[in-house]
């Protein structure tokens, strides 16, 4: 968790919309965004987005990872991971590489998972292992 000193630093690029604060417009930043208040508009970041339990977002979200414990009305595009937590609600379409919806989380919309074929590690099929075993057993018998 960030310390008071880290938040006091004027070069901290993160954006936080606290409880009780209402923001409208286009929010484009390179840091992380945390919303515990109300946001309406457009949300674009190269970092992560966290929607707190009291957070209400009426916007499309584009981010690296998105964690939702509040309410989102709009489409969510997470380059990597999207998590809808127990109290989270999304009313819109979502797309991500990895998706987690906890028990209690709500999604009203469609989900698109990005193709991860290229990133899957190579796995040797079992029949080749069995053939190799057979071959070594035959050699042992010959000997």
């Amino acid at each position: 968790m960030k310390t008071r000193g880290e938040f006091a630093e004027s070069d901290n690029p993160d954006t936080i919309i606290g409880y009780g604060v209402s923001v409208e417009g286009t929010l484009q930043t390179a840091g992380d965004i945390q919303i515990n208040g109300y946001f309406k508009g457009k949300l674009i970041t190269r970092g992560d987005v966290v929607i707190g339990e009291h957070g209400q977002v009426d916007a499309n979200i584009n981010a690296e990872n998105v964690y939702i414990a509040g309410e989102v009305t709009g489409n969510v595009n997470a380059i990597d991971k999207l998590e809808i937590l127990e109290t989270g609600k999304v009313d819109g379409n979502i797309s991500s590489t990895a998706l987690v919806i906890e028990s209690g989380g709500v999604l009203k919309g469609s989900s698109t998972m990005r193709d991860t074929e290229d990133t899957k590690p190579a796995v040797d099929p079992t029949y080749e292992v069995e053939e190799a075993k057979k071959a070594s057993e035959e050699e042992a018998v010959k000997v």
Partner: peptide
């Protein structure tokens, strides 16, 4: 650093 709550509460930082 992000705080992820198992109880799904994500408090304000």
């Amino acid at each position: 650093s992000l705080l992820r709550a198992k109880s799904a509460q994500v408090p304000e930082t």
